[in-house]
């Protein structure tokens, strides 16, 4: 028929060739979709902690898939096995693919050995979000934290990942810091590997 779609049919999804990941959609399309995700989840919870947990879960689902996709496409089916390797994979590769840029910084926590921080001056998911006063410390970055946790967990680095606003001097908007606290076993394994 006239004007039939060009899209090809495949017997199942794994037969379909993997895209190169260069396709784009408008930022507004993503922002509007993300806003619906947040609004919907607001109707499902009684408190901020629960809302953040649900956004984190949604992010986790994204992160787990991103890890699989990137390892397959960009790394010849290999993944990082060392702590610093996986952290820089998240900070550089994952960030670049998802948010179009490398994250602003990756630092080691000064007080605790098991803590690392990825900071972003203006995190994509927080760009069009202003948190109402009555919602306290709520941070939509929980979604990005979930992505990070999904990637790390999938790669065998279980961690607790949280998102926080950190005020920056001389700037109107705070930056978002994603705090990664690795599970004990990860550090033990890392120490053994030397």
């Amino acid at each position: 028929m006239i004007g039939a779609g060009k899209a090809k049919q495949y017997a199942n999804v794994v037969e379909k060739p993997l895209s190169k990941g260069k396709q784009e959609v408008s930022l507004s399309a993503f922002a509007l979709l993300f806003s619906e995700l947040v609004q919907y989840n607001q109707t499902q919870v009684d408190n901020i902690a629960e809302l953040e947990r649900r956004l984190e879960d949604a992010g986790y689902a994204v992160g787990a898939r991103v890890l699989e996709l990137l390892c397959h496409r960009d790394k010849g089916n290999r993944r990082e096995t060392r702590l610093l390797g996986i952290l820089s994979f998240v900070h550089s590769t994952v960030w670049k693919v998802l948010f179009g840029k490398v994250a602003d910084s990756l630092e080691k926590g000064t007080e605790h050995e098991d803590e690392y921080m990825i900071s972003e001056k203006e995190l994509l998911v927080n760009r069009f979000i202003s948190v109402p006063k009555d919602m306290g410390t709520f941070n939509c970055g929980a979604f990005a934290a979930g992505i990070v946790r999904g990637v790390l967990d999938g790669a065998g680095f279980p961690a607790v990942v949280t998102a926080h606003f950190v005020p920056v001097e001389g700037q109107l908007r705070p930056r978002t810091t994603i705090l990664i606290k690795f599970a004990e076993e990860v550090l033990r394994r890392e120490a053994k590997l030397g």
């Binding site: 396709q23 784009e24 930022l27 995700l37 649900r54 994204v62 693919v97 998802l98």
Partner: peptide, 21 residues
């Protein structure tokens, strides 16, 4: 001319929404 994001972020986020629902 508009700002754009990677379509995979969009696709996977939408997938996460559908699964949540």
């Amino acid at each position: 001319n508009v700002e754009r994001v990677n379509a995979e972020l969009f696709t996977l986020t939408y997938g996460a929404i559908v699964r949540q629902l």
